[in-house]
């Protein structure tokens, strides 16, 4: 049945790679331009959601398996908390980024922000994709004729 959606298929295949790159660009340029972890996570999830809508849920689950989604959800929070704990172990306050480069506080803050944003991005990707899976996995309650 998807065979006649030729244009959608071609356009999706063309765009997906660029979308993922754009997500990572927004992710890692949080301190130069508007953006950051939240937007990056949503864009990254949009790439998977677009693929799942145009192809099928089955194939997107092969690319990004469901167990990995749940692991990634927790991984993001762990990265966030881990950064904070790392600063504490280095003898500073929780999430005091100066700890990473005591001689160059600006560099330290750069590193710390990158790590924090990465954690946020990973979690948001996981949450968005998990919501999509939950919605799409729901069996349709109406048939075409009833509508």
């Amino acid at each position: 049945m998807i065979f006649h959606h030729l244009i959608l298929r071609v356009v999706t295949k063309l765009l997906v790679g660029t979308i993922i790159l754009f997500a990572l660009y927004v992710q890692f340029h949080g301190d130069f331009s508007p953006g950051g972890g939240f937007q990056a996570g949503v864009i990254m999830a949009v790439a998977f959601i677009l693929y799942g809508i145009v192809f099928s849920l089955e194939s997107v689950k092969k690319v990004f398996p469901e167990w990995l989604v749940h692991k990634i959800l927790a991984l993001g929070v762990l990265i966030y908390a881990g950064t904070g704990i790392a600063t504490m172990l280095l003898g500073y306050d929780f999430l005091d980024y100066d700890a990473f480069a005591p001689l160059h506080p600006t560099h330290g803050q750069h590193w710390g922000l990158l790590a924090i944003e990465f954690g946020v991005g990973v979690t948001v990707t996981g949450v968005m994709v998990a919501i999509y899976y939950a919605f799409a996995g729901r069996p349709p309650s109406l048939t075409d004729e009833d509508w």
Binding site: R9, V10, K13, L14, V16, G17, I20, L21, L24, Y25, F28, A47, Y51, F55, S56, S59, V60, K62, V63
Partner: peptide
């Protein structure tokens, strides 16, 4: 360096996507 890593990651995901569906690469 992050850019190079990101492009490699994107290519990896795209390859996985090509393999996963019935429609092979464009």
């Amino acid at each position: 360096v992050l850019g190079a890593g990101s492009s490699v990651f994107a290519v990896w995901i795209v390859r996985r996507m090509d393999d996963a569906s019935n429609f092979k690469r464009l």
